[in-house]
Write a protein that binds this DNA or RNA. Structure first.
Length: 290
DNA sequence: CAGGTC
DNA sequence: ACTGG
């Protein structure tokens, strides 16, 4: 039995674990006995929000290591008060900021993130979940903690062996023709995702978009949700609609014009603004199929 | 009809 | 285009 670290991490800042995990950023996390169970820093973790902080349980022999991993995943070092203060200057964000108080951007593994959002193409959130679970279930390492079992995202090398036909069988549909070469390219070391963290946003974005199946939107998701580029602004159909309706009087605006506007209007934390716009627009549409 | 891409 | 929630 692997050593397990459990404990309590005081959190004195806006954080809603449930909203953050169930806002379409991560797709392997699940509820289990009032806890959230999911991959964290290559291991499996249990998290539960209680008064004043988080209870955690994770396979590790060091509490400090676990706490560091939680800090990284939940981005507890972000200047969240400053970010919220900036976003509150926008009247359209005030209501979503209140209603979704504590909704945070998460920092997930870049490979897991990129793979997930290539699978997100033209799919809804339950379908993305099902694809990622099928994929991980087929060739990912099985992690377990207590009674919770969780297939890990297969590494690129393992996934590269699966082949496009099998990926289709696993329910990926036409996305299989992107995921297969994606895994092979990353496995071959042609692009080092982790190294993009230290590159400027534009450069990292262009590099990601060299990959087949990675367009502007998927690249921006990887930038915001895994590579610390909080200035990127993932523009999906919901956010596009929200921006058109709320800021441009229903007028159709070209994507690059929206991007320029977002950069000007939201600045360095456009990624956070996007997540609140997305969340609110989804709820208002009455399709909160999270 | 779905957190787009080539 | 694939297909399933």
């Amino acid at each position: 039995m692997a050593p397990t670290a459990l404990g309590f991490l005081p959190v004195a800042q806006p954080l809603d674990l449930e909203k953050s995990i169930e806002s379409g950023q991560v797709f392997l996390w699940r509820r289990h006995d009032g806890w959230f169970c999911g991959p964290l820093g290559g291991k499996i973790a249990h998290l539960r929000q209680v008064e004043g902080g988080l209870e955690f349980e994770m396979a590790s022999n060091s509490q400090e290591e676990v706490i560091a991993a939680i800090h990284a995943f939940l981005r507890l070092n972000d200047p969240i008060e400053e970010i919220l203060r900036q976003l509150q200057a926008d009247p359209h964000l005030r209501e979503p900021l209140q209603r979704n108080h504590g909704l945070r951007i998460l920092r997930q593994d870049p490979w897991e993130c990129l793979l997930s959002f290539v699978c997100s193409i033209d799919a809804n959130i339950p379908r993305i979940r099902s694809m990622i679970n099928a994929l991980a279930g087929h060739c990912g390492q099985e992690l377990s903690l207590g009674e919770c079992r969780l297939p890990a995202i297969p590494n690129p090398e393992t996934l590269a062996e699966v082949g496009e036909a099998k990926l289709r069988e696993l329910g990926l549909g036409f996305r299989a023709k992107y995921v297969d070469p994606l895994a092979k390219t990353i496995a071959a070391g042609e692009i080092d995702l982790e190294s993009l963290r230290s590159r400027p946003t534009d450069e990292a974005r262009k590099t990601l978009m060299l990959l087949k199946g990675v367009g502007e939107k998927v690249a921006d998701c990887a930038l915001v949700f895994s590579l610390d580029k909080l200035d990127a602004f993932p523009l999906d159909r919901w956010v596009r609609r929200a921006v058109q309706e709320w800021y441009f009087d229903g007028e159709a605006i070209p994507d690059r014009a929206i991007q320029a506007w977002a950069k000007e209007h939201f600045g360095g934390y456009a990624g956070y603004a996007q997540q609140y716009l997305f969340y609110r627009r989804r709820l208002d549409a009455g399709r909160s199929t999270f």
